[in-house]
């Protein structure tokens, strides 16, 4: 049985856990804990180690989705989680401009971990205050060749689109040789 891995990363409360939960065929193995600091007002629980989801392709291949903890004090986990990944998704809460700088920081760190394809998921596009993917591209100072995909992490089709865009990118790179 061969296993491949995609990492879902992004700032605190960007929707990583929900993203994996929406697409995973198993109950997401989540290690969420009660928050004990200033973020408590935003969210009751957060991921302290990782979320873990699975999509079985066939009897010989399985895709694992790993979510990283969003708070920077757990960033020592990031390089461990990124080991051997096929690519990664950077989730951004499009309604929360105060997290954009953190998203850019995380993106830079992951790019340094491994030269693998990545996409940016502009999450929470269903909410009224969401920044458009193009505005997010400017805010995050992303080149025009970086894919910024509108996303609603609670919607399966939307999550599928993000993963497919990432896989198309992987395929494109393989075809280029």
């Amino acid at each position: 049985m061969q296993a491949v891995k995609i990492v879902v990363t992004g700032p605190f409360n960007s929707g990583k856990t929900q993203f994996i939960r929406t697409i995973s065929e198993i109950e997401v193995v989540s290690t969420e804990r009660k928050i004990t600091d200033e973020f408590r007002s935003i969210k009751e629980q957060t991921t302290v180690a990782m979320d873990f989801g699975r999509i079985t392709v066939d009897e010989n291949l399985v895709l694992y989705l790993f979510g990283t903890p969003g708070q920077r004090r757990f960033d020592f986990m990031w390089d461990i989680l990124s080991e051997g990944m096929l690519g990664f998704v950077v989730m951004v809460d499009s309604t929360s401009p105060q997290t954009f700088r953190e998203a850019r920081y995380i993106l830079d760190i992951f790019r340094r971990y491994a030269k693998v394809p990545y996409v940016v998921a502009a999450n929470k596009q269903d909410l009224p205050d969401a920044w458009s993917p193009e505005d997010l591209r400017i805010a995050l100072r992303l080149n025009s060749n970086v894919k910024v995909i509108p996303c609603v992490a609670t919607n399966k089709e939307s999550v599928k689109r993000v993963l497919l865009e990432l896989l198309y990118l992987v395929l494109e790179i393989l075809e280029e040789g």
Binding site: V4, I23, I55, T56, V57, D58, K160, L167, Y168, L174
Partner: peptide, 10 residues
Amino acid sequence: LVQRLIDRIK
């Protein structure tokens, strides 16, 4: 392998 992943997610 990537194509299999794509097909499955679709």
